[in-house]
Structure formats: structure tokens, C-alpha cells
């Protein structure tokens, strides 16, 4: 086991290296002159050249990469061009809202989707099953921003039961935190509820067909006990996997959700940085998101290996 964990940890290095090279090249080869943006309306060509030199943009590209990569290893992600602040401090300041939004969403998704999937499986082929599956296909097909606008319109504007926008830290007020996060979580989670419900259903259906369940039936074990003790107990495997996979997609949803609900998180920062061609921030964000994604999948894999004796490592 220890060897397996070590091997998986080492495997993170090449992945992150690929990400780093890719991100650097991609962004540095891009158009747009950050120096001219900084200089603003009344700048002369001379001003722009001075700024270029200050930012090191006049150096050869491989020198820029080595400097950049060396700095990253020391935790220095560079300076934001648009804001003239360290990228790391920008990212840290925006971490909490995104973390709270994704965590609440994941918890909400698991709480809703697993029972939904199980109920559907238990009623395999009946109308409940069909309804759940129909909802799941539907939920899969509605773009998150369309859903977000509908929710704002209905709950915030029409019924007036939820705030329109913003974020409140749970350490300030737990109540206001939930009030503000409710609509974003609903918008963001729909697609994942659809996904996780489908997978739970599929697994439970499969498990219910397994021999040992049939045996349990024939022994006269009660229905409810079979569902809870046997069928559901195995369903964590796909659920954990899906959480690992969908973290990446969830991040995409976060970008949209944070923009619509004005949550000052990493997603908003991403959109702002892209619109401002703020290269260092885009680079930093991709690195941080990718690193998080890789780490989560590492944890998922290890959990998987630790919990399921059938998986070889």
C-alpha cells in the first residue's frame, strides 16, 4: 500500500510538468501586449517599451520560461498585469468562496443524487425510475447559466425569497451563508445530480442482480435491509469515481455560476483575467486548478485502493 501511494505520488510530477510547459507556451505565444494595456490611453511607444523591460517581456522565451518555472517552484506565481499584485495573493483571497461553493455543491449532490438513484434502481422499470431518469437526462441538457437565470428570476426577483447575488462567509453568519449560497448551489448541482443519480442507479441495478443479493432474498432478508446493507454499500465506488472525474467539469460550472451570482471566487477571477488578458493570473489559475484536480484524483485513487480489496495495487 505504501509503495502504491508513493508510486501514485511520483506520477504527479510528470503530469504537473506537462501542465506547466503547456500552460506557459500557450499563454506566452498569445497575442496582445500586456505592456500596452498597462500603459493605457495616453502612452507613447517609449512608455510601452519601458514597461516591457520592467516586466521582462523583452527577454528570449526560454529565459522567460526558466525564470517563471523557478519562481513557481518557490511558490511565486508572478505579478498580475491588470492588478499589479502577486498572483498568489489574488488566488488566496478568492479561494474561500469557491471552496465553499464546490464543497456545498458536492455534499448536496451526494445527499440528493444517491438516494434518488437508489430509489430509481429499487423501482427499476416503474414510473419512479422513468421519472428519475427523465429528470436526469433533462438536468444533463440544461446549460448552467440558463438555469441560473431562471432561478434568479423565480426565487430572487419574483418570490423575493433569496438574495440576488453575493457571498457571505460562514464564519460571519451561517444563516446568511446558506441564504446566499442556496441558488448558486442549486444551479451548479443540477447537472451533477443528474450524473451521480444515473451512476448510482446503474450500480445498484447491477448489484441487485448479483448472486449474493439473490441469495439474501432467498434467505428472506427484508427488502429495506438488502438495499441499505448490500446494494448501497457498494455504490460508493462509482460515486467516489464520479466526484473525482467531475471536479474538472465542476470547475467549469463554477466559472459560469460565479459570474452570474457575483461570487468573488476563482471562477470570477478566471473570467476577469481572460477578458483582461492577464496572462500571469490565467497561468496561475490553470496551475492551481490542475494541481487540485490531480491531488483530488490521487486521494480518490488511494481511497479506492484502500477501501476495495478487489482492486490490485
Amino acid at each position: 500500500m505504501a509503495l502504491y501511494i508513493l508510486r501514485r505520488l511520483l506520477a504527479v510530477i510528470p503530469v504537473m510538468l506537462v501542465v506547466a510547459v503547456f500552460v506557459f507556451l500557450l499563454i506566452r505565444l498569445g497575442p496582445g501586449d500586456p505592456a500596452a494595456q498597462l500603459a493605457g490611453d495616453a502612452a507613447t511607444a517609449e512608455d510601452i517599451q519601458r514597461i516591457r523591460e520592467r516586466l521582462g517581456l523583452h527577454l528570449p522565451i526560454h529565459v522567460q520560461f526558466i525564470t517563471w518555472f523557478g519562481n513557481i517552484l518557490q511558490g511565486d506565481l508572478g505579478m498580475s498585469i491588470a492588478n499589479n499584485r502577486p498572483v498568489s495573493s489574488l488566488i488566496l483571497a478568492r479561494l474561500e468562496p469557491t471552496l465553499m461553493l464546490t464543497l456545498t455543491t458536492i455534499i448536496f449532490v451526494v445527499l440528493v443524487a444517491v438516494p434518488l438513484g437508489a430509489i430509481a434502481a429499487w423501482n427499476h422499470g416503474r414510473w419512479i425510475d422513468r421519472a428519475v431518469m427523465a429528470f436526469s437526462v433533462l438536468g444533463f441538457s440544461i446549460p448552467v447559466f440558463v438555469l441560473a437565470y431562471i432561478l434568479i428570476y423565480v426565487f430572487a426577483m419574483w418570490l423575493g425569497v433569496a438574495p440576488v447575488q453575493g457571498f457571505v462567509s460562514p464564519t460571519d453568519s451561517l444563516y446568511r451563508f446558506f441564504a446566499h449560497i442556496a441558488l448558486p448551489v442549486l444551479s451548479l448541482s443540477t447537472i451533477y445530480i443528474a450524473l451521480v443519480a444515473r451512476i448510482t442507479r446503474a450500480t445498484v441495478v447491477e448489484t441487485l442482480g448479483e448472486d449474493y443479493i439473490r441469495t439474501a432474498y432467498s434467505k428472506g432478508v427484508r427488502d429495506r435491509d438488502i438495499l441499505l446493507k448490500h446494494a448501497l454499500r457498494n455504490s460508493w465506488v462509482p460515486v467516489v469515481t464520479v466526484i473525482g472525474i467531475s471536479i474538472a467539469a465542476l470547475i467549469g460550472g463554477v466559472v459560469v455560476t460565479e459570474s452570474v451570482y457575483n461570487i468573488p471566487g476563482l471562477g470570477r477571477l478566471t473570467v476577469d483575467a481572460v477578458l483582461a488578458s492577464d496572462y500571469p493570473v490565467i497561468q496561475g489559475l490553470i496551475l492551481v486548478f490542475s494541481f487540485t484536480y490531480v491531488l483530488i484524483n490521487l486521494v480518490v485513487d488511494i481511497t479506492y485502493a484502500a477501501l476495495d480489496p478487489r482492486i490490485r495495487y
Binding site: A156, Q165, D272
Partner: peptide, 18 residues
């Protein structure tokens, strides 16, 4: 000074008093 890039969202927050 709060930055709300989505105009509709910003307008609605003025109406709701936020």
C-alpha cells in the same frame, strides 16, 4: 465599491437593497 460584472444582477441587487 463592489464589482458586479453582470448588469442584470447588479440592478436587481439595488432593487432588493443589497
Amino acid at each position: 465599491w463592489v464589482n458586479i460584472p453582470d448588469h442584470g444582477t447588479a440592478l436587481n441587487s439595488v432593487i432588493s437593497g443589497e
